[in-house]
Simulated scan of single mutants.
Amino acid sequence: MNTSIDFRLIRQLWLFLAVAEEQHFGRAAARLNMSQPPLTEQIKVLEQSLKLQLFERSRRGTQLSPAGAAILPAVQQFASQVERLQLVIREVASGQSGVLHIGAVTSAMLETVPPLLDSLRQAYPHLTVFIKEIDSVEAIPALKSGELDLAFVRLDGDVGSGIMTMPLSEDRLAVALPKDHSLAALSRVSLRSLANEELVMSSRERSPVYFDLLTSVCRAHGFAPRVLHEVRTITSQIAYVGCGQGVALVPSSMRKVAPENVVVRPLKERIMVVAAALAWNSNRYHPMVDVAVSWLKKKK
């Protein structure tokens, strides 16, 4: 890994961001508490080093060039990450609060995560929590690298490498159908009756354990699923069904978020799936992780 850091470039990008947002060198200089000539000079140096023209200057003012507009989102993201780093450093240095990084699939963010956060904030009012929406497949690498402290995802069983998992909730498997579908009139739907239906599935790339489970369930009932779409989340499955793009095997609880043109019917077969599981890295000690795990164990 290259450990050299071009701090001059970092400063110049910060100056670029100010000019880009103000669209005026004078206002940007005032915002940065510096005079305009050195700001103008630093932007010229940045343009020369990047071999790009970042601004178009005219009597009407300063506008981003196409190249400047192209790099602006990445510079804004970088600036946001630096500000977040500064916040974490200040809080850790003060010793008055902890920082917890949580990743979660969308369904867990709706149901499982909020009660935990309420409890933690009551017990630890200075705790800072960062939440990031992730796919299940992202959890393991992020926990290994330390980017995340906790992950609420659809994982089951031993995943190795010191990553611990704890199932939090199970749900009965159901099928989401367009409201005018012939099977929608039934109170329960047999899995075998879906053999000729086009299915919307959560992508194997994003949640391999969940995808393989549903595929094996279909095969165990005598058919190979006809997958029309692989989508990012279970909520996306519901949305696709609402757009007439097939039917979807989903946890029964998804009826809470189904729109009026989608019905969710339980299967006749009692098939349980892990709706949410907690994952954490046992090789990385974090006191708030221990607190969260203990709280969730009591709530099971």
Results as ranks from 00 to 15, higher is better:
F223V: 05
S202N: 13
H221W: 07
T3H: 09
E138V: 05
V289R: 05
H229A: 12
L46D: 01
P141K: 01
S35W: 01
M34L: 11
I238E: 02
R226L: 11
F223L: 05
S187G: 11
L117A: 06
T112E: 06
K299L: 12
P114G: 04
Q53I: 14
W295F: 13
F78G: 02
A20V: 01
P178M: 04
E83F: 06
I271T: 04
L194Y: 01
P251V: 03
V189R: 00
N196V: 05
D290E: 14
A29L: 00
D118Q: 14
R27F: 01
D156K: 12
K44D: 11
L116A: 03
P66M: 03
A185E: 15
M109D: 07
T165R: 05
S253A: 13
M201E: 07
G98A: 00
V159Y: 08
A74R: 13
W295E: 10
L177R: 04
L168D: 08
L168G: 05
M272T: 15
L249I: 06
N196M: 10
E198V: 05
R11I: 01
A176Q: 08
K298E: 15
S94G: 05
L213G: 08
V75P: 02
S4Q: 15
L50H: 07
L278Y: 00
R8W: 06
E197V: 06
S58R: 10
R255L: 13
I134A: 02
Q36K: 00
G146E: 02
G244Y: 08
W280M: 04
K297D: 13
E21R: 07
D156Y: 14
R27W: 00
A139K: 00
V88G: 02
K300Y: 11
G61P: 06
D156V: 10
T3F: 08
N2K: 07
N2R: 10
I234C: 11
L9E: 12
M166I: 10
I10V: 15
N283W: 15
L120R: 09
Q77P: 09
P287R: 03
V227D: 03
E133D: 13
E260T: 12
E197L: 04
A195C: 07
L117R: 05
E147G: 09
S202R: 14
L9C: 09
L87E: 06
I5H: 08
F130D: 08
E170W: 11
L116K: 01
K297G: 14
W295C: 10
S282T: 12
P115C: 03
I234Q: 09
M288E: 14
F7R: 14
V88A: 03
L177N: 02
D149E: 02
L296C: 10
D171C: 12
S145H: 05
V209E: 12
V247C: 05
P37E: 00
R188Q: 15
K300V: 12
E170N: 15
A176Y: 07
G160N: 09
E111N: 09
E91A: 06
S169R: 13
I131Y: 11
T62I: 10
V92N: 06
I163L: 09
I234R: 05
V105G: 02
A28G: 01
L296M: 15
K44H: 13
L50Q: 10
T62E: 04
H221E: 08
E198R: 10
D135I: 08
E21H: 08
D180K: 13
E260S: 14
I163C: 13
I43A: 03
G26N: 11
P125R: 03
L155S: 07
S49N: 15
S216Q: 14
L50V: 04
